[in-house]
């Protein structure tokens, strides 16, 4: 296939009278980790929600693997391989860890394949294996984030959307999660990552984009962005 796996053009999203995204362009090439950094309210979550079909764009297009998906229902988008681990983890706290994982595989019926992917997910997150029968609400924040990612993997994503996986977690846990994000990518899954923790996000990504109040203002190799003065000043806390 030529061209990027995900291609967003002129995406405009409004909440009532307020325009949250003012026509953004974004490409995610196959096999890469692309990160979208930006401060609170810049439109990062809005972008991911629109790609997943939870929000409707008022203008622009979203194409995945060459097919326009902007008008599809969220479950159709998941079926095509665009899977999101949402902000705030979105686990089902009243269900067991095992049931949460099973929900991740909802669109699939190949039980052998599901079992293999479940094993692979549990190998990535061994702590979940110890807690399979526990209700997900009793997990720690870090474990819930691991569950959210493991669950998304069970849908067998071609493109994994991660919304703020570092949110509210201790630095040690964040480091573990980003190490695993890299492993998932190395195993062949393309990733679009949204983060406030710019330093961490740029350190694992290939390409970075800076989103500022609904516009993409910078786009470069992640390593170059991490060195850029303006990014350092605004997002990395450097002088």
């Amino acid at each position: 296939m030529n061209g990027p796996l995900l291609s967003v053009r002129g995406l405009t999203v409004r909440y009532g009278a307020i325009e949250a995204l003012h026509g953004i362009d974004l490409d995610v090439p196959e096999g890469r980790i692309v990160t979208l950094i930006g401060s609170n309210g810049a439109g990062k979550t809005t972008t991911l929600r629109t790609i997943s079909g939870l929000l409707r764009a008022s203008a622009g297009s979203v194409a995945f693997a060459g097919e326009e998906i902007g008008e599809l229902a969220p479950h159709e988008i998941v079926k095509r391989g665009v899977v999101q681990a949402p902000e705030g983890r979105g686990i089902f706290p009243n269900m067991s860890v095992d049931e949460n994982l099973a929900l991740g595989a909802f669109t699939r019926s190949d039980s052998a394949g599901i079992a293999a992917d479940r094993e692979r997910s549990l190998a990535l997150f061994p702590r979940l294996r110890e807690r399979l029968s526990q209700s997900a609400g009793t997990l720690s924040g870090g474990e819930q984030q691991m569950l959210a990612i493991a669950r998304a993997l069970l849908a067998r994503p071609r493109l994994l959307l991660l919304d703020e996986p570092s949110l509210g977690l201790a630095p040690q846990v964040v480091a573990t999660i980003f190490r695993i994000v890299r492993e998932i990518n190395a195993a062949g899954t393309t990733i679009l990552l949204v983060e406030q923790n710019a330093r961490m996000a740029l350190s694992v990504s290939h390409v970075g984009c800076v989103l500022e109040v609904g516009r993409i203002v910078l786009r470069d190799e992640a390593s170059a962005l991490a060195k850029s003065d303006s990014v350092r000043r605004a997002y990395l806390g450097g002088e």
């Binding site: 939870l54 969220p74 479950h75 998941v78 079926k79 929900l103 909802f106 849908a155």
Partner: peptide, 10 residues
């Protein structure tokens, strides 16, 4: 919303 993200046809 989360159910929809699991691929459940709500």
């Amino acid at each position: 919303k989360t159910a929809a993200l699991m691929g459940i046809p709500v």
